[in-house]
Simulated scan of single mutants.
Amino acid sequence: MTMILVRWIEHQVKLLRASNYDQVDVDHLIEEVEDMVSREQKELRSRLHQVIKHLLKCQYQPKRKSTSWIATLDERRAAIARKLKRVPSYRQSIGPLARQAYPRVIRATARETRLPPGTFPPELPYTPEQLLDEGFVP
């Protein structure tokens, strides 16, 4: 985020706190908030992508399960947990974002494992709770 944008946002917040609604740049503020939500969802979807991919690798290549796979799972889950702690309402997005990411996860996992894409279930096989559970590794 550029310094100019930060200053503009700070100014908009100041106007809102002072109830100077007629001076708020509403159209641009809406655009910025929508863009922020989009970036947050993209980041969360990316982390879920990594979690799902590593769970599939652990499940479908158990003999190759490594400490680096588990470390990646732990790190991505911890990052998601931090985000959910900051913004608890994102918890309800976990399932839909994971299901949305799943087709790309299958393709990426198939490339990395050299297993046919049909090896993996056509629908996301993990619940949102399993995706976030640090103790869950198939």
Results as ranks from 00 to 15, higher is better:
residue 2 T to L: 01
residue 2 T to P: 01
residue 9 I to M: 10
residue 10 E to Y: 05
residue 11 H to D: 13
residue 12 Q to M: 10
residue 12 Q to G: 01
residue 12 Q to W: 04
residue 13 V to G: 01
residue 14 K to V: 07
residue 15 L to K: 15
residue 16 L to R: 03
residue 17 R to N: 11
residue 20 N to G: 03
residue 23 Q to R: 15
residue 23 Q to E: 15
residue 23 Q to C: 07
residue 24 V to F: 08
residue 25 D to C: 04
residue 27 D to C: 05
residue 31 E to N: 08
residue 33 V to D: 00
residue 34 E to H: 12
residue 34 E to T: 10
residue 39 R to P: 01
residue 41 Q to D: 14
residue 43 E to Y: 03
residue 44 L to K: 11
residue 46 S to K: 09
residue 48 L to H: 03
residue 49 H to G: 09
residue 50 Q to M: 09
residue 51 V to N: 01
residue 52 I to P: 00
residue 53 K to E: 12
residue 53 K to C: 07
residue 53 K to W: 02
residue 54 H to Y: 15
residue 55 L to S: 08
residue 55 L to Q: 12
residue 58 C to T: 15
residue 58 C to V: 15
residue 60 Y to R: 08
residue 62 P to C: 05
residue 64 R to A: 13
residue 64 R to S: 11
residue 65 K to I: 03
residue 65 K to R: 14
residue 66 S to I: 12
residue 66 S to T: 15
residue 68 S to L: 10
residue 69 W to E: 08
residue 70 I to M: 02
residue 70 I to Y: 03
residue 72 T to Q: 00
residue 73 L to S: 05
residue 77 R to W: 09
residue 78 A to M: 04
residue 79 A to T: 03
residue 80 I to M: 10
residue 82 R to V: 02
residue 82 R to K: 15
residue 84 L to D: 10
residue 85 K to L: 13
residue 87 V to E: 04
residue 87 V to S: 04
residue 88 P to H: 12
residue 90 Y to Q: 13
residue 91 R to K: 15
residue 92 Q to F: 10
residue 94 I to W: 01
residue 94 I to N: 03
residue 97 L to G: 06
residue 99 R to T: 10
residue 101 A to Y: 01
residue 102 Y to G: 07
residue 102 Y to A: 06
residue 104 R to N: 08
residue 105 V to R: 04
residue 106 I to F: 03
residue 106 I to D: 00
residue 108 A to C: 05
residue 108 A to P: 02
residue 109 T to D: 00
residue 111 R to E: 12
residue 111 R to V: 12
residue 112 E to K: 15
residue 112 E to A: 14
residue 112 E to Y: 07
residue 113 T to M: 03
residue 113 T to G: 03
residue 116 P to F: 09
residue 117 P to D: 06
residue 118 G to Y: 07
residue 119 T to E: 04
residue 120 F to L: 09
residue 121 P to I: 04
residue 122 P to G: 04
residue 125 P to C: 02
residue 126 Y to W: 14
residue 126 Y to C: 03
residue 127 T to Y: 00
residue 128 P to W: 08
residue 129 E to Y: 06
residue 131 L to D: 03
residue 133 D to C: 06
residue 134 E to L: 12
residue 134 E to F: 13
residue 134 E to T: 07
residue 136 F to I: 04
residue 137 V to G: 00
